[in-house]
């Protein structure tokens, strides 16, 4: 059981998190500036039709699986970590909160607004008006940028939370 939880579980949590944060950084460092340039020469539709929807699908499911696997690893210690009930849980508690806020941003702000921007799912046949699309684009952009900002301390607290690393970084 420990092997599944701490071996396979942690490995899958990290692999999932790499996929999630990798795509998040791709959106922010590559796709957003790329789309701006593509919009100027009329080549944006190829990206918004074939690349962005695929990236978003992987992105949102990776966010969910990363969160669920993280919760699985913490197991019965999840409430204690989130409520900072023991000093040893402070670092992972901060990491878990940052990850949780990022996960909520993905499913609560980025995905619903990107569906409007890219005419996906219920908007495929009924696209929203341009004004609403622009508003949705800005909201999704800011949520994505907030997540990029939060990913920096989140990764720090995740990697600095385990055993030797935690003692080296935080003492005790």
């Amino acid at each position: 059981m420990d092997f599944i939880l701490y071996g396979v579980g942690r490995w899958l949590h990290i692999a999932s998190g790499v996929l999630w944060v990798g795509l998040l950084w791709y959106f922010n460092f590559v796709q957003v500036p790329g789309l701006k340039a593509a919009g100027a020469d009329g080549t944006a539709p190829g990206i918004t039709k074939h690349i962005a929807p695929r990236a978003l699908e992987l992105f949102r499911w990776a966010a969910l699986s990363t969160w669920l696997l993280g919760a699985m690893i913490l197991g019965s210690k999840l409430p204690a970590a989130l409520l900072f009930q023991d000093k040893a849980y402070y670092p992972i508690g901060i990491g878990a909160w940052l990850g949780t806020i990022m996960f909520l941003n993905v499913w609560g702000l980025i995905w619903p607004n990107q569906k409007k921007v890219l005419n996906l799912y219920q908007y495929a046949q009924n696209p929203v008006a341009d004004a609403e699309k622009n508003k949705a684009r800005r909201t999704a952009f800011l949520a994505s940028r907030i997540n990029t900002m939060l990913s920096i301390p989140m990764l720090f607290f995740m990697v600095a939370s385990g055993g030797l690393f935690r003692r080296a970084m935080f003492g005790g």
Partner: peptide, 30 residues
């Protein structure tokens, strides 16, 4: 004032500042 999140360097600097602040919060709270 311009929103720092509108630029990539601004976003990264905000993330680094937040990391340092949270690190010291955890360190001092322990």
């Amino acid at each position: 004032m311009k929103n720092p999140l509108d630029s990539i360097p601004g976003t990264i600097i905000c993330g680094l500042i937040l990391t340092v602040v949270l690190y010291y919060v955890v360190l001092l709270a322990r």
